[in-house]
Simulated assay, not measured.
Amino acid sequence: MWGDEPQLKVVRERMKLLLDIHHEELAPVHRHADVGELVMRQGQTADSLMLLTRGKVAIQIRLIEAEPHTLAVIEAEELLGEMGLFGSGQHSADVRVVEGPAELVEVSGDNFLKTLLFDIDLAMEMLALVSQRCMRSNQVIGLLLDGIAASERGDTDQLGRLATEIEPLNYCLSKAMDRLLAIGHGRYSEPPDSTG
């Protein structure tokens, strides 16, 4: 997800090794989830960590709009829940199965954090991964804000350059830039006047 594949590969391999070596302490639970099922809910306490071993999930965020915004679609093998576990203690997004059934290995957050004492290298890799994802998010937010400013100025050339720059960072968020481009080109019209 978001260009962090080399770092993520190291974390995945070390995580699988940790699950093998400390199986009894971690007490992993194998879960199955059908298409459409939420495996993590935005705002819920982040008390576990999951490794997606089969299927695809969408990372979705709900703010003001009724429909959630899809930030990314990820597939096995991907780590889920690490940002909430190491961060605020709450999940910052929904994780919904979009191709499945999905298979996941879930471990208690407390058990995982205790076991990390035996593998400080994994702890450092995970913190680096979370930090990298946060920095990438900041970059994407900055590009979107630049896009809004360019749209306000009517600078469609700048919008085009920004759209090209954001697409490899995150395909799903690049759709937001595409909407700004459409607005800049006048393809979105004003809603009809409801006053009559």
Rank of each mutant, 00 (worst) to 15 (best):
M1F: 09
M1A: 13
D4Y: 08
Q7M: 07
V10S: 02
R12V: 07
R14G: 02
K16V: 02
L19S: 07
D20M: 12
H22V: 01
E24H: 05
L26M: 09
V29R: 15
R31E: 08
D34A: 15
G36P: 14
L38C: 10
V39S: 03
R41L: 10
Q42R: 13
Q42S: 14
G43K: 14
Q44M: 09
T45E: 13
A46Q: 00
D47V: 06
K56D: 10
L63M: 14
E65Y: 11
E67I: 13
E67W: 13
T70N: 01
T70W: 02
A72I: 03
A72R: 08
V73M: 01
I74N: 02
E77Q: 09
E77M: 06
L80M: 04
L80Q: 00
E82C: 12
M83E: 13
M83A: 14
S88A: 07
V95E: 02
E103N: 08
E103V: 03
E103Y: 05
E103Q: 15
L104C: 08
L104K: 03
V105F: 04
E106M: 11
N111K: 14
F112W: 15
K114S: 14
F118K: 15
F118I: 04
D121Q: 11
L122V: 07
A123F: 09
A123W: 10
M124F: 14
E125S: 07
S131V: 10
Q132S: 11
R133W: 07
R133T: 02
C134P: 01
M135P: 02
M135L: 15
R136V: 04
Q139C: 06
V140W: 07
L144A: 02
L145F: 10
D146H: 12
D146E: 15
D146V: 05
D146K: 13
G147W: 00
A149F: 00
A150P: 05
S151W: 04
E152A: 12
T156G: 09
Q158R: 08
L159H: 01
L159C: 11
R161W: 00
R161D: 07
T164M: 11
E165R: 05
I166R: 02
P168C: 12
L169M: 01
N170A: 08
Y171T: 15
C172S: 15
L173W: 02
L173D: 03
D178T: 01
L180M: 15
L180W: 02
L181S: 11
L181D: 03
L181C: 15
I183A: 03
I183L: 12
H185E: 13
H185A: 04
R187G: 08
E190F: 08
P191A: 03
T195D: 09
G196L: 03
